[in-house]
Simulated scan of single mutants.
Amino acid sequence: MKLITILAFISLIICGQTYAQQLTTTSFQKEENMKDQDHYTFQLSDQVTREKVHYRNRYGIAITADLYIPKKHGTVPMAAIAISGPFGAVKEQASGLYAQTMAERGFVTLAFDPSYTGESGGEPRNIASPEINTEDFSAAVDFLGLLPLVDRNRIGIIGICGFAGMGLNAASVDKRIKAVATTSMYDMSRVMAKGYYDKLTAAERTNMLEKMSQQRWEDASNGTPAAGPRNLPEKLSGNEPQFVVDYFNYYRTPRGFHPNSLNSNGAWMATNALSFMNMPLLTYIKEISPRPVLLIAGENAHSRYFSEDAYKAAAEPKELLIIPNAVHVDLYDKTDIIPFDKLTTFFNNNLQ
Protein backbone atom coordinates (compact mmCIF):
# COMPACT_ATOMS: atom_id res chain seq x y z
CA MET A 1 0.00 0.00 0.00
CA LYS A 2 1.45 3.32 -1.03
CA LEU A 3 2.33 5.76 1.72
CA ILE A 4 -0.22 8.35 0.62
CA THR A 5 -3.02 5.80 0.89
CA ILE A 6 -1.92 4.77 4.37
CA LEU A 7 -1.71 8.38 5.48
CA ALA A 8 -5.19 9.02 4.14
CA PHE A 9 -6.55 6.47 6.58
CA ILE A 10 -4.78 7.80 9.69
CA SER A 11 -7.65 10.14 10.41
CA LEU A 12 -10.35 7.70 9.34
CA ILE A 13 -9.43 5.10 11.94
CA ILE A 14 -7.70 7.21 14.57
CA CYS A 15 -8.59 10.88 14.42
CA GLY A 16 -11.72 11.13 12.33
CA GLN A 17 -10.47 14.16 10.38
CA THR A 18 -10.15 13.41 6.67
CA TYR A 19 -12.89 10.97 5.71
CA ALA A 20 -15.74 13.41 5.24
CA GLN A 21 -18.66 11.25 4.13
CA GLN A 22 -21.38 10.85 6.72
CA LEU A 23 -22.74 7.31 6.80
CA THR A 24 -25.84 5.58 8.09
CA THR A 25 -26.12 2.38 10.07
CA THR A 26 -26.46 -0.92 8.27
CA SER A 27 -29.68 -2.88 8.25
CA PHE A 28 -27.97 -5.48 10.42
CA GLN A 29 -27.22 -2.82 13.02
CA LYS A 30 -30.76 -1.48 13.00
CA GLU A 31 -32.56 -4.79 13.07
CA GLU A 32 -30.37 -6.93 15.27
CA ASN A 33 -28.30 -4.81 17.62
CA MET A 34 -29.83 -1.42 18.20
CA LYS A 35 -32.71 -3.02 20.08
CA ASP A 36 -30.34 -4.58 22.62
CA GLN A 37 -27.89 -2.24 24.32
CA ASP A 38 -26.64 -5.14 26.49
CA HIS A 39 -25.59 -7.16 23.47
CA TYR A 40 -22.26 -8.96 23.98
CA THR A 41 -20.08 -10.28 21.19
CA PHE A 42 -19.43 -13.49 23.14
CA GLN A 43 -21.47 -15.94 25.20
CA LEU A 44 -21.36 -15.71 28.98
CA SER A 45 -19.32 -18.58 30.41
CA ASP A 46 -20.94 -20.91 32.91
CA GLN A 47 -17.69 -20.79 34.91
CA VAL A 48 -17.97 -17.13 35.93
CA THR A 49 -20.39 -14.55 37.21
CA ARG A 50 -20.67 -11.15 35.56
CA GLU A 51 -21.90 -8.06 37.40
CA LYS A 52 -22.22 -4.52 36.13
CA VAL A 53 -20.49 -2.14 38.53
CA HIS A 54 -20.06 1.62 38.84
CA TYR A 55 -17.38 3.80 40.40
CA ARG A 56 -15.69 7.16 39.79
CA ASN A 57 -12.24 8.02 38.60
CA ARG A 58 -10.04 10.75 40.11
CA TYR A 59 -11.77 13.39 37.96
CA GLY A 60 -15.20 12.41 39.24
CA ILE A 61 -16.26 10.75 35.99
CA ALA A 62 -18.59 7.80 36.54
CA ILE A 63 -17.12 4.61 35.11
CA THR A 64 -19.24 1.60 34.20
CA ALA A 65 -17.55 -1.78 34.09
CA ASP A 66 -18.25 -5.50 34.11
CA LEU A 67 -16.81 -7.46 37.03
CA TYR A 68 -16.06 -11.12 36.32
CA ILE A 69 -15.52 -13.55 39.20
CA PRO A 70 -14.75 -17.28 38.97
CA LYS A 71 -17.65 -19.29 40.35
CA LYS A 72 -15.23 -21.67 42.03
CA HIS A 73 -13.30 -19.55 44.48
CA GLY A 74 -12.53 -19.80 48.13
CA THR A 75 -12.26 -17.19 50.83
CA VAL A 76 -8.62 -16.28 50.22
CA PRO A 77 -8.26 -12.92 48.43
CA MET A 78 -7.41 -13.39 44.76
CA ALA A 79 -5.25 -11.74 42.13
CA ALA A 80 -7.10 -9.30 39.84
CA ILE A 81 -6.70 -7.82 36.36
CA ALA A 82 -8.18 -4.62 34.91
CA ILE A 83 -8.71 -4.63 31.14
CA SER A 84 -9.66 -2.09 28.48
CA GLY A 85 -9.44 -1.54 24.75
CA PRO A 86 -9.37 -1.43 21.83
CA PHE A 87 -9.51 2.31 21.10
CA GLY A 88 -13.12 3.07 20.22
CA ALA A 89 -14.42 -0.24 21.57
CA VAL A 90 -16.56 -1.10 24.59
CA LYS A 91 -16.52 -3.69 27.35
CA GLU A 92 -18.98 -5.94 25.53
CA GLN A 93 -16.36 -6.56 22.85
CA ALA A 94 -12.71 -7.64 23.14
CA SER A 95 -11.98 -6.45 26.68
CA GLY A 96 -14.96 -8.37 28.02
CA LEU A 97 -13.87 -11.51 26.23
CA TYR A 98 -10.39 -11.18 27.75
CA ALA A 99 -11.87 -10.50 31.18
CA GLN A 100 -14.15 -13.51 31.03
CA THR A 101 -11.40 -15.83 29.83
CA MET A 102 -8.96 -14.71 32.50
CA ALA A 103 -11.69 -15.10 35.13
CA GLU A 104 -12.18 -18.67 33.95
CA ARG A 105 -8.49 -19.09 34.72
CA GLY A 106 -8.77 -17.96 38.29
CA PHE A 107 -8.54 -14.15 38.34
CA VAL A 108 -11.03 -11.50 39.40
CA THR A 109 -11.26 -9.30 36.32
CA LEU A 110 -12.74 -5.95 35.39
CA ALA A 111 -13.52 -4.81 31.83
CA PHE A 112 -14.36 -1.10 31.80
CA ASP A 113 -15.70 1.45 29.36
CA PRO A 114 -13.28 4.38 29.20
CA SER A 115 -14.40 7.88 30.18
CA TYR A 116 -16.67 9.63 27.67
CA THR A 117 -17.54 6.38 25.86
CA GLY A 118 -19.84 3.39 26.16
CA GLU A 119 -21.85 3.35 29.38
CA SER A 120 -19.32 5.42 31.30
CA GLY A 121 -19.93 9.07 32.04
CA GLY A 122 -18.25 12.26 30.94
CA GLU A 123 -19.36 15.15 28.75
CA PRO A 124 -19.07 15.80 25.91
CA ARG A 125 -19.34 12.29 24.55
CA ASN A 126 -16.94 10.45 22.31
CA ILE A 127 -13.63 12.01 23.18
CA ALA A 128 -10.38 10.45 24.35
CA SER A 129 -7.57 11.83 26.49
CA PRO A 130 -4.07 10.47 27.14
CA GLU A 131 -4.30 11.68 30.74
CA ILE A 132 -7.88 10.76 31.60
CA ASN A 133 -7.77 7.38 29.87
CA THR A 134 -4.54 6.60 31.72
CA GLU A 135 -6.36 7.56 34.91
CA ASP A 136 -9.16 5.16 33.96
CA PHE A 137 -6.77 2.24 34.52
CA SER A 138 -5.76 3.56 37.92
CA ALA A 139 -9.42 4.06 38.85
CA ALA A 140 -10.01 0.41 37.98
CA VAL A 141 -7.18 -0.51 40.35
CA ASP A 142 -8.85 1.67 43.02
CA PHE A 143 -12.08 -0.25 42.61
CA LEU A 144 -10.52 -3.71 42.53
CA GLY A 145 -8.35 -2.99 45.56
CA LEU A 146 -11.39 -2.22 47.69
CA LEU A 147 -13.07 -5.57 46.98
CA PRO A 148 -12.78 -8.06 49.88
CA LEU A 149 -12.27 -10.84 47.34
CA VAL A 150 -9.17 -9.14 45.85
CA ASP A 151 -5.63 -9.03 47.20
CA ARG A 152 -4.75 -5.40 46.46
CA ASN A 153 -1.05 -6.30 46.29
CA ARG A 154 -1.74 -8.61 43.34
CA ILE A 155 -3.33 -6.44 40.66
CA GLY A 156 -2.26 -6.31 37.01
CA ILE A 157 -3.65 -4.80 33.82
CA ILE A 158 -4.13 -5.73 30.17
CA GLY A 159 -4.35 -3.05 27.49
CA ILE A 160 -5.64 -3.96 24.04
CA CYS A 161 -4.83 -1.96 20.88
CA GLY A 162 -4.96 1.78 21.62
CA PHE A 163 -5.46 1.20 25.33
CA ALA A 164 -2.20 -0.71 25.46
CA GLY A 165 -0.32 2.58 25.34
CA MET A 166 -2.53 4.04 28.06
CA GLY A 167 -1.99 0.88 30.12
CA LEU A 168 1.79 1.15 29.84
CA ASN A 169 1.58 4.81 30.82
CA ALA A 170 -0.57 3.91 33.83
CA ALA A 171 1.86 1.21 34.93
CA SER A 172 4.78 3.65 34.70
CA VAL A 173 3.16 6.06 37.15
CA ASP A 174 0.94 3.81 39.31
CA LYS A 175 3.18 1.55 41.37
CA ARG A 176 0.23 -0.52 42.58
CA ILE A 177 0.11 -2.16 39.15
CA LYS A 178 2.33 -5.21 39.59
CA ALA A 179 2.37 -6.49 36.00
CA VAL A 180 1.18 -5.20 32.60
CA ALA A 181 0.45 -7.05 29.37
CA THR A 182 -0.56 -5.61 26.01
CA THR A 183 -1.96 -7.12 22.83
CA SER A 184 -2.00 -5.56 19.35
CA MET A 185 -0.55 -2.43 20.87
CA TYR A 186 -1.02 1.07 19.47
CA ASP A 187 0.79 4.10 20.84
CA MET A 188 -2.04 6.53 20.16
CA SER A 189 0.05 9.62 20.86
CA ARG A 190 2.69 8.50 18.37
CA VAL A 191 0.33 7.58 15.57
CA MET A 192 -1.67 10.78 15.94
CA ALA A 193 1.40 12.98 16.16
CA LYS A 194 3.51 11.27 13.49
CA GLY A 195 1.21 9.07 11.42
CA TYR A 196 1.67 5.42 10.62
CA TYR A 197 5.33 4.45 10.50
CA ASP A 198 6.15 8.03 11.55
CA LYS A 199 5.66 9.21 7.95
CA LEU A 200 3.51 12.25 8.64
CA THR A 201 5.38 15.28 7.34
CA ALA A 202 5.73 18.51 9.27
CA ALA A 203 3.43 20.19 6.75
CA GLU A 204 0.78 17.49 7.10
CA ARG A 205 0.95 17.68 10.89
CA THR A 206 0.66 21.47 10.78
CA ASN A 207 -2.32 21.21 8.45
CA MET A 208 -4.11 18.78 10.79
CA LEU A 209 -3.47 21.02 13.78
CA GLU A 210 -4.59 24.09 11.86
CA LYS A 211 -7.90 22.45 10.97
CA MET A 212 -8.53 21.31 14.53
CA SER A 213 -7.54 24.71 15.91
CA GLN A 214 -10.04 26.44 13.61
CA GLN A 215 -12.65 23.83 14.54
CA ARG A 216 -12.39 25.00 18.13
CA TRP A 217 -13.74 28.45 17.13
CA GLU A 218 -16.69 26.79 15.46
CA ASP A 219 -17.30 24.53 18.45
CA ALA A 220 -17.10 27.48 20.84
CA SER A 221 -19.53 29.46 18.70
CA ASN A 222 -22.00 26.58 18.55
CA GLY A 223 -21.65 25.76 22.23
CA THR A 224 -20.94 22.12 21.54
CA PRO A 225 -18.09 20.17 19.90
CA ALA A 226 -18.71 18.86 16.41
CA ALA A 227 -18.53 15.18 15.66
CA GLY A 228 -16.11 13.94 13.07
CA PRO A 229 -17.10 11.45 10.38
CA ARG A 230 -18.00 7.90 11.27
CA ASN A 231 -14.98 5.78 12.10
CA LEU A 232 -15.68 3.07 9.53
CA PRO A 233 -17.71 3.11 6.31
CA GLU A 234 -20.99 1.28 5.83
CA LYS A 235 -19.52 -0.53 2.85
CA LEU A 236 -16.03 -1.16 1.56
CA SER A 237 -15.13 0.36 -1.79
CA GLY A 238 -12.45 -2.20 -2.55
CA ASN A 239 -9.37 0.02 -2.42
CA GLU A 240 -8.88 0.19 1.34
CA PRO A 241 -5.67 -0.99 3.02
CA GLN A 242 -5.96 -4.52 4.37
CA PHE A 243 -5.93 -3.33 7.97
CA VAL A 244 -9.06 -1.25 7.29
CA VAL A 245 -10.71 -4.33 5.81
CA ASP A 246 -9.74 -6.23 8.96
CA TYR A 247 -11.26 -3.54 11.18
CA PHE A 248 -14.43 -3.54 9.10
CA ASN A 249 -14.72 -7.32 9.34
CA TYR A 250 -14.65 -7.08 13.12
CA TYR A 251 -16.53 -3.91 14.01
CA ARG A 252 -19.11 -3.67 11.22
CA THR A 253 -20.27 -7.27 11.04
CA PRO A 254 -22.05 -9.57 13.50
CA ARG A 255 -18.64 -10.82 14.61
CA GLY A 256 -17.86 -7.73 16.69
CA PHE A 257 -20.55 -5.10 16.23
CA HIS A 258 -21.88 -3.26 19.25
CA PRO A 259 -24.09 -0.15 19.06
CA ASN A 260 -22.13 1.62 21.82
CA SER A 261 -18.81 1.14 20.06
CA LEU A 262 -17.53 4.16 18.17
CA ASN A 263 -15.78 1.89 15.71
CA SER A 264 -19.00 0.02 15.03
CA ASN A 265 -21.53 2.77 15.12
CA GLY A 266 -20.13 6.22 15.76
CA ALA A 267 -17.46 8.87 15.48
CA TRP A 268 -14.93 10.65 17.64
CA MET A 269 -15.22 14.41 18.08
CA ALA A 270 -13.56 16.36 15.27
CA THR A 271 -10.88 17.72 17.62
CA ASN A 272 -10.24 14.40 19.36
CA ALA A 273 -6.59 14.10 18.37
CA LEU A 274 -5.47 17.45 19.81
CA SER A 275 -4.31 16.32 23.25
CA PHE A 276 -2.53 13.25 21.91
CA MET A 277 -0.39 15.13 19.43
CA ASN A 278 2.00 16.65 21.96
CA MET A 279 1.74 14.32 24.97
CA PRO A 280 3.84 11.18 24.30
CA LEU A 281 2.44 8.28 26.33
CA LEU A 282 5.58 6.17 26.61
CA THR A 283 8.03 8.80 27.84
CA TYR A 284 8.57 6.99 31.15
CA ILE A 285 8.10 3.38 30.07
CA LYS A 286 11.42 2.41 31.67
CA GLU A 287 9.96 3.29 35.06
CA ILE A 288 7.65 0.28 34.92
CA SER A 289 10.73 -1.76 35.87
CA PRO A 290 11.27 -3.82 38.00
CA ARG A 291 7.68 -4.83 37.37
CA PRO A 292 7.30 -7.04 34.28
CA VAL A 293 5.97 -6.11 30.84
CA LEU A 294 4.59 -8.57 28.27
CA LEU A 295 3.96 -7.26 24.76
CA ILE A 296 2.02 -9.45 22.31
CA ALA A 297 1.59 -8.71 18.61
CA GLY A 298 0.62 -10.50 15.43
CA GLU A 299 3.36 -11.38 12.97
CA ASN A 300 1.41 -9.80 10.11
CA ALA A 301 -0.17 -6.95 12.10
CA HIS A 302 0.21 -3.48 10.64
CA SER A 303 0.70 -2.34 14.24
CA ARG A 304 3.51 -4.75 15.08
CA TYR A 305 6.16 -2.04 15.12
CA PHE A 306 4.53 -0.30 18.09
CA SER A 307 5.08 -3.39 20.27
CA GLU A 308 8.60 -3.91 18.96
CA ASP A 309 9.58 -0.32 19.68
CA ALA A 310 7.96 -0.37 23.12
CA TYR A 311 9.93 -3.53 23.87
CA LYS A 312 13.17 -1.80 22.91
CA ALA A 313 12.32 1.20 25.08
CA ALA A 314 11.21 -0.74 28.16
CA ALA A 315 13.60 -1.95 30.85
CA GLU A 316 13.88 -5.51 32.08
CA PRO A 317 12.00 -7.64 32.92
CA LYS A 318 10.24 -7.57 29.58
CA GLU A 319 9.10 -9.98 26.89
CA LEU A 320 7.92 -9.61 23.31
CA LEU A 321 5.74 -12.41 21.93
CA ILE A 322 4.99 -12.46 18.20
CA ILE A 323 2.06 -14.66 17.18
CA PRO A 324 2.77 -16.42 13.85
CA ASN A 325 0.55 -15.43 10.90
CA ALA A 326 -1.75 -13.27 13.06
CA VAL A 327 -3.02 -9.83 12.04
CA HIS A 328 -3.98 -6.99 14.36
CA VAL A 329 -7.65 -7.87 14.92
CA ASP A 330 -7.00 -11.60 15.35
CA LEU A 331 -5.98 -10.74 18.90
CA TYR A 332 -9.36 -9.14 19.57
CA ASP A 333 -11.48 -12.25 19.63
CA LYS A 334 -9.90 -15.34 18.08
CA THR A 335 -9.50 -17.50 21.16
CA ASP A 336 -7.50 -20.11 19.27
CA ILE A 337 -4.91 -17.42 18.44
CA ILE A 338 -4.88 -15.18 21.53
CA PRO A 339 -2.20 -16.70 23.81
CA PHE A 340 -4.32 -17.02 26.93
CA ASP A 341 -2.06 -19.75 28.30
CA LYS A 342 0.86 -17.32 28.12
CA LEU A 343 -1.16 -14.53 29.74
CA THR A 344 -2.23 -16.90 32.52
CA THR A 345 1.34 -17.97 33.21
CA PHE A 346 2.56 -14.38 33.08
CA PHE A 347 0.08 -13.13 35.66
CA ASN A 348 0.29 -16.24 37.87
CA ASN A 349 4.06 -15.80 38.04
CA ASN A 350 4.00 -12.06 38.62
CA LEU A 351 0.96 -11.53 40.83
CA GLN A 352 2.18 -13.59 43.73
Rank of each mutant, 00 (worst) to 15 (best):
S120F: 02
F163K: 09
D136H: 11
F163M: 12
T101I: 13
Q93M: 05
D136R: 12
K91I: 00
F163Q: 11
F163N: 10
R152S: 07
G145C: 12
L110P: 11
G106K: 10
G162M: 08
F143I: 08
F137L: 07
S95W: 03
C161W: 02
I160N: 01
S120I: 03
G165C: 02
T101P: 01
A128M: 06
E119W: 02
L146S: 13
T117G: 09
P124L: 04
A139Y: 09
S115I: 00
G122W: 13
N133C: 10
Y98Q: 05
F112T: 11
S115N: 05
A164N: 13
I132C: 08
E135D: 14
N133Q: 14
F112K: 11
G165L: 02
G165E: 03
L144Q: 10
Y98C: 02
A103P: 00
G118V: 04
R152K: 09
G156C: 05
Y98W: 07
P114K: 03
L146A: 15
E119A: 12
E123Q: 12
A103D: 03
F143W: 10
Y116R: 13
G96E: 05
V150P: 05
L149V: 15
A128F: 02
N126W: 11
R105E: 06
G165H: 01
I158C: 01
S129F: 15
R125C: 04
I127E: 13
G156Q: 05
I160G: 00
Q93V: 04
G118R: 04
Q100T: 04
E131I: 14
A99D: 01
A128K: 05
P148M: 00
K91W: 00
R105K: 11
G165S: 04
I157H: 03
F107K: 09
F163G: 06
E92G: 12
I127D: 13
M102R: 06
T109Y: 07
A140S: 15
P114F: 00
P130D: 07
L149I: 15
G145S: 12
A140N: 15
L144T: 10
G159N: 02
I158H: 00
V150T: 10
G118W: 00
S115C: 03
F107T: 13
L144A: 07
I158E: 02
A140E: 12
N153Y: 12
T134K: 10
D151Y: 04
A140R: 12
N126Y: 13
A128R: 07
E119M: 10
D142H: 08
T117I: 11
A99P: 00
G106P: 13
E131L: 15
G122P: 15
L147P: 13
F112C: 14
E92I: 05
N126D: 14
L147M: 11
F163I: 15
C161I: 10
G118D: 07
Y116W: 15
V90M: 08
I127A: 15
V90E: 07
A139E: 08
K91C: 01
A94M: 09
G121V: 04
I132W: 13
C161A: 12
S120A: 04
L97F: 01
C161R: 08
D113K: 03
Q93C: 05
